[in-house]
Every structure is written in structure tokens, then in C-alpha cells.
């Protein structure tokens, strides 16, 4: 067994974690750690050179994920992980670019970029940790907060309606859409791998417990209690109609793989369409010179 400097056996995920940044900032029983473990496992199963994989995050608790992954990693601005990743991918098409961020970042402030990246079938993989709340800033209401749930800016309960994220990205053209909870570690890992292998815009929503803010404000117990809730209330239903995937406060959660289809990615369309129009005058994006 490989050993690290302290002669302690190396953890099997150490090669992909920035160990010099551990301990991380996440709360005990937060679901993000589980999502990261599943991601690293998926990366290890994914047959792709690790030096050619980049991770991009936005802002928030999940926005910190990029900083702990030992790959080229970028911690960008609030909501802009997807357009940053878009530039990164288009400038260097051999990269596998992964956006790992939270619901507030991707679906609220970054919502416009999310739908357009799905529409373009931009060749990136998006992992969205949905904890139903703005956690980093102290538990404010999000566009994913279920109706009736309490948050620090919906102190009498949320009267508003949350997004059904799989419906949103699926209707915009994503080629792979799945949802799992932080409890479904084997299925989530496999789904992440499938998403990584899928050309085009692939998307996995990960329902994750926020024990410090969401659970406490709503008197739902600890992170463990939320995992028990997922156990008792998750229904695996592959191919479920996207319209049926609304999440209601403390009601059953439909999980599974909902979309797995093929259509030309942005770069494929660029090459094919312009190649046809311009013939031998066309020079593909990949042949464009580097900055040095």
C-alpha cells in the first residue's frame, strides 16, 4: 500500500484531493463531502487522462469544491461557472470540463447561463448540489426552496414555487439528466461517470442535506435524520416524466436517470456546419493557435 510522508497508508482518494487544504470548510454531516467522494470515485473509474480534466465552481458552499480537487481547478464568480467553463472548453477542446456548484449559484444567479449551455449542448458536465437553501450566506430562501419550507428570508414559510431543475435543463436540450440524493452513493457515482462519458451537456442534480441551516430551521433533525428521510422517501423511477419531478416539502423525491440521448455538441455543430458552408476554406477551432 502506498504511504504518505507520515508513513500512514495513503487514502485511496488522496491523489485527487489537495491534501494540503484539508480540513475542509464544510459542516459535519453536510452532503457535499459525499458528493465529492462519489465524484472522485467516478473520476477514478472514468477512462480519461487526469491532466486533461478541469473543474470549475461558482460561489457558495458547493462553490468551494473546485478548491479541494487536485486537478486544474477554478473558483470563479457567483453564477458564472458555466460561462467560464464554456470559454475554457472552447479554447481547449481536448479538456474535459466539469462544473461543480450549488443550486443558488447555477439555477438562480446563473440560471440564464444554465439554460443557454443546455440549449447549445455545450460539451461540459454539470454537477449541481441542491441543498434547498443559500447555505454559505446563512440559510436564505433559494429558487429551489420547497414551498412551505422555512428559511432566514422566508421566516413564515416559503409561499413561492421552486424550480424543477431536471425539467428546466431537460426542456432546454440537455443530453443527460439524472437526480440522486447524497444517500445513493453507488448510483450517484455511476451516474456521475455516465455523465462524464456523455458528449454534450450532461447534468446531475444531487439532493444533499444541509443540517446546519435547512434542517435546523425546519426542525428536521440532524444530517443523519435527513439521510433517513431520503432512505424512506426516495423513489427510483428511471425515465420518469420531467413534469413529475417537482419537489415538495418533506414529500417523496423521485430520483433516477431521466434523459440519456444524443445530439450534436456545440463544437461538433461548429465544425460540421461551418465546414460544410466554407469547404476547404474552413479551419477548425482546434487548429487555432495557442497564446504561446
Amino acid at each position: 500500500m502506498k504511504k504518505n510522508a507520515g508513513n500512514v497508508p495513503e487514502h485511496p482518494m488522496e491523489n485527487l484531493l489537495r491534501m494540503d487544504r484539508i480540513p475542509h470548510i464544510w459542516c459535519s454531516t453536510c452532503g457535499i463531502g459525499t458528493a465529492v467522494s462519489c465524484f472522485i470515485q467516478a473520476l477514478q473509474n472514468f477512462d480519461y487522462p487526469l491532466d486533461k480534466i478541469a473543474v470549475v465552481s461558482g460561489i457558495g458552499c458547493s462553490g468551494r469544491i473546485a478548491g479541494y480537487i487536485k486537478l486544474d481547478s477554478f473558483h470563479t464568480t457567483h453564477g458564472r461557472a458555466i460561462p467560464f467553463a464554456t470559454g475554457l472548453k472552447l479554447a481547449n477542446p481536448e479538456l474535459k470540463v466539469i462544473v461543480f456548484s450549488g443550486d443558488g449559484d447555477l439555477v438562480s444567479i446563473g440560471g440564464n447561463h444554465l439554460i443557454h449551455a443546455a440549449r447549445r449542448n455545450m460539451d461540459i458536465t454539470v454537477f449541481c448540489v441542491n441543498n434547498f437553501i443559500y447555505a454559505m450566506t446563512g440559510g436564505q430562501c433559494a429558487p429551489t426552496t420547497p414551498t412551505d419550507a422555512n428559511s432566514s428570508t422566508s421566516p413564515y414559510g416559503n409561499f413561492d414555487h421552486p424550480f424543477n431543475i431536471p425539467l428546466l435543463v431537460g426542456s432546454c436540450g440537455a443530453t443527460y439528466v439524472a437526480r440522486w440524493t447524497a444517500l445513493h452513493i453507488r448510483r450517484l457515482t455511476r451516474s456521475m461517470q455516465e455523465a462524464l462519458e456523455k458528449p454534450g451537456f450532461s447534468f446531475v442534480e444531487i439532493i444533499a442535506p444541509c443540517s446546519t441551516l435547512y434542517a435546523r430551521r425546519n426542525r428536521l433533525g440532524t444530517g443523519l435524520d435527513l439521510m433517513k428521510f431520503y432512505h424512506d422517501n426516495s423513489v427510483i423511477q428511471h425515465g420518469a416524466p420531467l413534469e413529475s419531478l417537482d419537489i415538495q416539502f418533506q414529500k417523496k423525491i423521485i430520483v433516477g436517470k431521466f434523459i440519456d440521448k444524443k445530439r450534436p455538441t456545440f463544437l461538433e455543430a461548429w465544425d460540421q456546419y461551418l465546414g460544410k458552408k466554407l469547404g476547404d476554406k474552413f479551419i477548425s477551432a482546434e487548429k487555432g493557435i495557442r497564446a504561446a
Binding site: F74, L88, N92
Partner: peptide, 8 residues
């Protein structure tokens, strides 16, 4: 910004 880090 992303594209610049991608080398273009």
C-alpha cells in the same frame, strides 16, 4: 476569462 486559461 475561461478561454484565456484554456490557452487562447
Amino acid at each position: 476569462v475561461g478561454a484565456s486559461w484554456g490557452g487562447k
